[in-house]
Deep mutational scan, measured.
Amino acid sequence: SEIVKHAEEALERGEFVRIEHNGRVIEIRNEEALEELRRWVEK
């Protein structure tokens, strides 16, 4: 997914991403959060 790709690229640069999706906000700061995002987006 485009969202996950964006988050992965930001993590590689040492940045973090805040994503709003279906009214929820998730902050991607590490691999664990990235995995959570993947599960969340796939639903």
Rank of each mutant, 00 (worst) to 15 (best):
K43C: 14
A33K: 06
V4L: 14
G14N: 06
R39P: 00
E36R: 10
A10W: 05
L37D: 00
W40S: 05
I19Y: 08
I28R: 00
R24A: 07
E2G: 10
A7F: 05
S1E: 11
E27S: 05
H21C: 15
R18I: 15
V17C: 14
H21W: 15
K43L: 14
K5Y: 04
R39D: 08
E12M: 15
F16R: 12
V25Q: 05
V17H: 06
K43A: 14
I28V: 12
E20L: 11
H6K: 14
L34I: 07
N22R: 11
H6T: 11
E32T: 10
E8L: 13
H21E: 03
W40V: 06
I26P: 00
N22Y: 11
R24V: 12
G14V: 01
E32V: 09
I19W: 07
N30T: 12
R24N: 07
R39K: 12
L11H: 03
E15S: 07
R39W: 07
N22E: 12
E35V: 07
E36S: 08
A7T: 03
G23H: 06
E35H: 07
E20C: 15
G14C: 13
E2R: 12
R39Y: 07
A33H: 11
R39L: 08
A33V: 05
R38Q: 05
E42D: 10
N30F: 05
K5R: 13
L34P: 00
N22K: 11
E12T: 12
V41D: 02
E9T: 08
E15C: 14
E20S: 08
A10Q: 06
R39N: 11
E20G: 03
V41H: 03
V41F: 12
N30Y: 05
K43D: 13
R38K: 12
A7Q: 01
E9C: 11
G14P: 05
V17S: 04
E2W: 14
I19P: 01
R29Y: 11
H21F: 15
S1R: 14
V25K: 04
N30W: 07
E12K: 15
R38I: 08
V41C: 09
R38P: 02
E15I: 08
V17P: 14
R13G: 05
A7K: 01
F16S: 14
I26A: 01
I28P: 00
N30I: 04
L37Y: 05
V4D: 02
E8G: 08
E42W: 03
K5N: 05
V25N: 04
E27T: 09
I19N: 00
E12D: 11
V41W: 08
I3Y: 05
N30Q: 02
H6S: 10
R29W: 12
H21P: 00
I26T: 03
L34W: 02
E31H: 14
N30L: 04
N22S: 08
N22L: 13
E2T: 11
L37G: 00
R29F: 11
E2D: 14
A7C: 10
R13K: 13
A10T: 04
V41K: 01
L34S: 00
E20W: 10
K43W: 12
F16Q: 13
V17I: 14
V4Q: 03
K43M: 14
K43F: 13
E2S: 12
R38L: 06
A33G: 13
E12A: 15
L11E: 02
R18P: 05
R24T: 09
R24S: 08
S1M: 13
L34R: 00
R18V: 15
V41Y: 08
E20D: 06
R24D: 06
V41T: 04
I28M: 03
A7M: 04
E20I: 12
V17F: 08
V17D: 05
I19F: 09
E35Q: 10
G23A: 02
E15Q: 07
V41I: 12
E36C: 13
E20H: 08
N30C: 12
L34A: 00
E20V: 13
K43P: 07
L34D: 01
E15A: 05
E32W: 08
A10K: 07
R13N: 11
L11V: 07
E20Q: 06
V25L: 08
V4P: 02
E8S: 12
V41P: 01
E27H: 09
V4R: 03
E12P: 03
R18E: 12
K43G: 13
I26N: 00
E8Q: 14
W40D: 04
R18K: 14
R13C: 12
H21V: 15
I3D: 03
N30D: 13
E2A: 13
E27L: 10
E8N: 06
W40Q: 06
R24M: 13
A7L: 05
E32A: 13
R24F: 14
E20N: 05
V4Y: 07
I28K: 00
E32N: 08
H6V: 12
E36P: 00
S1F: 13
E15G: 10
L37A: 01
G23Q: 02
E32L: 09
N30G: 08
E27A: 06
V17L: 14
K5C: 06
V17T: 08
L37I: 03
R24Y: 12
R29A: 10
E12R: 15
G14R: 02
L11F: 11
A10G: 05
A10R: 06
R18T: 15
R29S: 10
G14Q: 04
L11Q: 03
I3C: 14
I26F: 15
G14H: 05
V25A: 05
F16I: 15
W40T: 05
R29L: 12
E27Y: 10
E36V: 09
I3N: 04
E8M: 14
E12Y: 11
R13I: 06
A10H: 08
E36D: 09
N22W: 12
E27F: 10
E35I: 07
R39F: 07
E42Y: 05
E32P: 04
L11K: 03
V41Q: 04
E42G: 08
R24L: 13
I28N: 00
R39G: 08
E42L: 06
V17M: 09
N22V: 05
W40H: 07
E8F: 09
E31A: 14
K5A: 08
A33F: 05
E36T: 09
E9H: 08
E2P: 08
E35W: 01
E15D: 14
E31L: 15
F16V: 15
N30E: 04
I26M: 08
E35L: 06
I28C: 06
V4K: 02
V4E: 01
E35S: 08
N30P: 03
L34N: 00
R24P: 00
E35A: 11
E2C: 15
I3Q: 06
V25F: 10
I26V: 07
S1Y: 14
I28Q: 00
H6P: 02
S1A: 13
E9A: 13
W40R: 04
E35D: 12
E20K: 05
E9K: 12
L11P: 03
I26Q: 02
R18M: 10
A7N: 02
V25Y: 10
E8I: 13
R29P: 04
V41L: 12
I26S: 01
E42N: 07
E9V: 07
A7R: 01
R24H: 11
I3F: 07
I3V: 10
E31C: 15
K5D: 03
F16Y: 09
E36M: 11
G14K: 04
G23C: 09
G14F: 03
L34M: 06
E8V: 10
K5P: 01
R38T: 03
N22C: 15
E42C: 11
S1C: 15
G23E: 02
E42K: 08
K43V: 13
A33Q: 14
L11S: 03
R39S: 09
F16T: 15
V4F: 08
H21R: 06
A7G: 01
A33T: 12
V25G: 03
L37F: 08
A7Y: 04
E15T: 03
R18N: 10
H6A: 14
R24Q: 10
R38E: 03
E9G: 07
V41M: 11
I3M: 10
E2L: 13
F16L: 13
K5S: 07
L11I: 08
N22F: 13
I3G: 03
I19K: 00
E42I: 04
V25D: 02
N22A: 11
E20A: 07
I26D: 00
E8Y: 09
E12W: 10
R29G: 08
A7V: 09
L11W: 11
R18W: 13
V17W: 04
V4W: 09
S1L: 13
E12L: 15
E35K: 09
R13L: 08
W40G: 03
N30K: 02
K5T: 06
E27G: 01
H21K: 05
E15L: 02
I3H: 06
N30V: 04
S1P: 12
L34T: 00
E36L: 10
E27K: 04
I28A: 01
I19L: 07
I3T: 06
F16E: 10
I19C: 09
H21S: 06
H21Y: 15
V41N: 02
E32S: 09
F16N: 12
L37C: 05
V17K: 01
V41R: 01
N30M: 04
V41G: 02
R39C: 12
I3A: 07
A33N: 13
E32R: 10
E8P: 01
